Amino acid sequence: MTGVTERRSNWPTLIPDLFGWVEAGIPGLHSTSGLHSIRIEESLTDGIYTLRAELPGIDAAKDVELTVTEGILTLRAERHAELTDKQHTEFRYGAFARAVRLPAGANGNDAAAAYKDGVLTITVPVPEAEAGTRTIPVRPV
């Protein structure tokens, strides 16, 4: 037995692809911009916020755009379709996008990104906030 699951072509065509529904989410809740979502992992360890994004099959140097605006990290990518004829594909081609709010105090100007084995890793330093209580003097008017 192989590890590949056989797709049953004799299933009624009226039954939608359940996995396609799970991937797409609940209809009506997503924007109609035509953008696919990007799967991510986030962590905050030792003052470094790390975001890892699944982006297999892209040329990161040409097809990825990262921006930070007002504490929002926006990731845009595009996967181009190969020009070969396919009988069946479950790959998603086109534009992908994701925006995430950076942790409070994150320094977006010092963000860095690297791409390896289909995973884009973005790191952003998050300096520790000064702890303690500050007394605010009140001036008479």
Rank of each mutant, 00 (worst) to 15 (best):
R7P: 03
R8P: 02
W11C: 14
P12E: 08
P12H: 09
T13V: 02
T13L: 15
T13G: 08
T13D: 15
T13F: 13
L14N: 13
I15P: 03
I15R: 13
D17R: 10
D17G: 15
D17S: 07
F19V: 12
F19Y: 11
G20E: 10
G20T: 12
W21T: 15
V22A: 12
E23K: 15
E23H: 14
G25L: 12
I26Y: 11
I26G: 02
P27I: 10
G28R: 01
G28W: 04
G28E: 04
L29A: 08
L29H: 11
L29M: 10
H30M: 02
H30T: 02
S31I: 00
T32Y: 07
T32F: 03
H36N: 05
H36G: 00
S37Q: 12
I38T: 09
I38N: 06
R39K: 00
I40L: 14
E41G: 12
E41F: 03
E42G: 00
S43T: 11
D46I: 00
I48H: 10
I48T: 13
Y49N: 12
T50P: 02
R52C: 11
A53Q: 02
A53Y: 02
A53P: 15
E54Y: 01
P56C: 00
G57S: 04
G57F: 02
I58S: 02
D59M: 05
D59Y: 03
A60M: 09
A61N: 08
A61G: 04
K62G: 02
K62Y: 13
K62R: 14
D63K: 07
E65H: 09
T67N: 01
V68H: 00
V68W: 10
E70F: 07
I72K: 14
L75C: 04
R76Q: 09
A77L: 09
A77Y: 01
H80G: 06
H80N: 01
A81G: 01
A81N: 04
A81F: 01
A81L: 15
E82R: 13
L83C: 07
L83H: 12
L83I: 08
T84W: 06
D85W: 08
D85F: 11
D85H: 07
K86I: 06
K86S: 15
Q87P: 10
H88S: 14
H88L: 15
H88Q: 13
T89F: 14
E90S: 14
E90W: 04
E90R: 13
G94K: 05
G94V: 08
A95R: 10
A95F: 05
A95P: 15
F96M: 14
A97D: 02
R98I: 05
R98G: 05
A99F: 01
A99K: 00
A99Q: 06
R101G: 07
R101H: 13
R101W: 08
R101Q: 11
L102W: 04
P103E: 00
P103M: 01
G105L: 06
A106L: 03
A106C: 12
N107Q: 03
N109C: 07
N109D: 14
N109Q: 14
D110G: 03
A111D: 11
A114C: 05
A114N: 14
A114S: 14
Y115P: 05
K116H: 08
K116I: 01
D117Y: 05
G118A: 09
G118H: 03
L120I: 03
T121S: 11
I122F: 01
T123Q: 01
V124T: 01
P125H: 00
V126A: 10
V126S: 08
V126P: 09
P127W: 04
P127R: 04
E128W: 01
E128H: 13
